[in-house]
Design a protein around this nucleic acid. Structure first.
Lengths: 192, 192
DNA sequence: AGAAAAAAAGGACATTTGTCCCAAGCACGA
DNA sequence: TCGTGCTTGGGACAAATGTCCTTTTTTTCT
């Protein structure tokens, strides 16, 4: 659920030391919104440390969380390829350290550095691979199954995130999430 | 809903005429399954003409349609970047004409042809952009709204596709789709 | 520390969607 | 041309989820 990409971060750190490219560093406080849906930006970010949530808000104000980004994941890169507005808002969950590239630098790297090019391409492909089964799974299984799956994959996450985020990630209301959690607890009582 | 990419097809046709690369052509009959989920393949396909559906089947046999691919859309390309199994099955809806590249050829083009490289990258980025709001929308709105949206975007599609596919695309059962359609009809009666 | 705001939990009820059926229409192959 | 098997349409009921609201607890800010 929290996605990472060690290869990418390792390579960018190497690049930055080489210092032939301008790569900046930033630190954002928890709960800072870095990208806002439907705006235009001129930077691409790569997460060095921390967790960010990437989400869409619809007209009714409902949030739908696309993914949680961890070390080595980038955001703001889609706008390099089609000169459009950002589709997702991105907000830091805890303290977030990032590397940032201007569009200019990023494009230059894509064009001149085959390794970088390949890493970006792979990262895009992985985002697609990741999303496909996820939405399918969420549709096909009851909330309880989704919770169990999540708790198995990221036991620690339930501690960090507010219930609302977990609900938005699964795509249900907080009420439904609570109900499901209670039923799970009841079942575990019964087992003892 | 049926996605296309004219730039890509135009460029590949130009490439093929140049004939320095091996690009084959294939025609598939309607309802032919070209890729099967969880198998391994050695080709990438680009649609020249026709429509294909791209879907995931879960353990219970439920299909969830990811997207409908039209002219200029590719499939089987994700496996170039991570040497994994295919995540989606792909089946022709009507007669389907495709160009096909061996992985070897495709990789060579990616490495040596910057225009091709850029087109592929943009295509990947667009797939991500496309999926994000779609799943969010489907979750947040009732079936009726999803149908109306679909009918507005692709009035012809309702003719070509069996109801089951439309339901699978929206992510509901055929029963629910029918119910929603009937209610829509009733509402339109009332207006007159 | 104390007030205000946000998060968590859950009751009661409404609505949506799914499941399980059955029946009619149509389509394609033996 | 006659079946056999999809596709379509819908009834009846069950289950899941959402909405609205209230209460309690926790966090945050001054």
């Amino acid at each position: 659920m929290i996605r990472t990409n060690q290869d990418f971060i390792a390579y960018v750190e190497r690049l930055k030391k080489g210092s032939s490219h301008e790569i900046d560093e930033h630190v954002f406080k928890p709960k800072t919104t870095i990208l806002r849906q439907d705006k235009r930006y001129d930077s691409v970010y790569l997460i060095k440390k921390g967790i960010a949530k990437c989400y869409i808000t619809d007209e009714n104000g409902k949030e739908f969380i696309q993914e949680f980004l961890g070390e080595g994941m980038e955001f703001g890169e889609l706008e390099i390829f089609s000169e459009k507005l950002t589709i997702c808002s991105v907000t830091s969950v805890d303290e977030l350290c990032v590397y940032s590239f201007s569009h200019k630098t990023y494009k230059a790297l894509l064009a001149d550095d085959p390794t970088f090019n390949h890493l970006v391409m792979k990262a895009l492909a992985d985002k697609i691979r990741y999303k496909a089964p996820r939405h399918s799974y969420q549709h096909s299984y009851p909330i309880e199954d989704n919770i169990l799956r999540l708790q198995k994959l990221f036991p620690e996450l339930t501690e960090i995130l507010p219930k609302k985020d977990i609900a938005n990630y699964i795509g249900v209301t907080t009420r439904s999430l609570n109900r499901a959690l209670r039923e799970l607890r009841a079942k575990q009582e019964n087992l003892r």
